[in-house]
Design a protein around this nucleic acid. Sequence first.
DNA 1: GCGACAG
DNA 2: ATCTTGTCGC
Length: 393
Amino acid sequence: MAQEAVGPPPEETLSLWKREQALLKARVVDQDTEAWQRDPAFAGLQRVGGVDVSFVKGDSVRACASLVVLSYPELEVLYEDSCLVRLTAPYLSGFLAFREVPFLVDAVRRLREKEPSLVPQADHRPHGSTTDRAFCGSCRSSWWTEMGCSTPEVILLPRGFGVACHLGVLTDLPCVGVAKKLLQVDGLEKDALHRDQTRLLRAGGDSFPLMGRSGAVLGRALRSHDRSSKPLYVSVGHKMSLEAAVRLTHSCCRFRVPEPVRQADIRSRDHIRRTLGGPQPPAPGRRARPVSRVAGAWRSCRGGRCGWGPSSQGGQAVGGRSRSGQPPGSLVARPQHGVDAAPSPRHHRKARRPKAWPEGGPQDPSGEGRTPEAHSPGPRTHPEAPDPGAQER
DNA sequence: GCGACAG
DNA sequence: ATCTTGTCGC
C-alpha cells in the first residue's frame, strides 16, 4: 500500500501551520533553566535523548521513528524505541515538525509510561532542585528543550520555530536544535565569509555565530569534533541558552553528529531493514539475492506481517524480539555498519519534489492519536557494538 | 560541472 | 530523508 504523492498542502493549511508555530513559539524559553546547564561540566546531567525519523526508500508514507536515551557523559544507549509509522504530512521546508513531531511526541509518551525513570525532567521540581535527567532530543537537525513563556527570535528557521522548539514545547522537555546543513534564511549562505569562518574552527568545540542580514544571531556553527571539518549548525530549541546548547552538543559528539541523534538514526534505519527486509524496490543495477538472508528471525514481527497493517495498535505492540535471548538478529548484538554521517560530496543530482500529502490530509499537530504499526520497545541495557571507524574528513 | 531552504 | 561516491574550490 504505498501511498502516492497527492499534492501540495492547501494554502489554508499552511496558514494554520504558521499560526500554530507562532502560538507555540510564544511558549519557548531560550534561556538556561536547569542547574546543570550552568555547570561547566554539566554536572548533574545524567541522561540525554535523541530522536530521528528514517524513511523507506520508494515509499512516501512509511517511516520509522526512533527515540533513544543515553547515559551522560558515557553516552551509552539505555533505552530505545523504534516504531514504524505512517506519515500523513509531506515534507515542507520550514514545516518539518508537522510531519515528524507527532510520532516523536508519541514516543515520548511511551517513554513516560514504560520507563518513567528515564524520562527527561522526570525529577523536575518547580522550585528548581537540580535536575539530574535531561532529555536533549534531537531529530537530525534538531534537539529540544523545554517550554516556557518567553519569545526567542534566535532560531535558525524562517519563522524562528523548528522541530526542536515544536517538540520541546509539546513535550515540555529541554531541547537543542542541530542541523547538518545550513538553512539559508535571512541572508545566510555559504559564501566566502562563511567558509573562512568555518576554516577558523580548529578544534572540536570551536564555533562562530550565524548572523542574519538583520544582525540577529540565528544560531552557531560548531565544529563538533576535532576531526570533523564540516560544522554542525546549532540553534536554540528550548529551555537552554544557545551557548549551553552548543556546549552540550559538543560534549555529546563522538563523531560529527551528536551521539543521541546518531544512535536514533542508526537504529531507526536498522529497524526498517529488519522489518521490511533488504532494499524493497530492487535497486536498479544490482540484483539482490532472491533468497532470504540469514535467519528469518530478522523479520520476526508477529503474524509474518512484519508489523505492517492494522495489526498492532496504540501502545505496546511488543512484537517479535524481546531482549530475552533472541537470535543474534536482535537489536543488541547486531554490528552497526551505519558508520557515520559521511561527508557529503557536493556533486549531487537534483531529485526533489516532495510537497505532497502522503495520504489523509492535514493532521493534528498536537501529536495525539497516532497509531504505531510496529514497535520495538523497551530499554536495552547493552551499549551497541562499538562504532566502526567513523572518520570525518 | 553545480547549486538555493531542516528531513 | 534516500542513493552513491569519495575527500578541496567557483
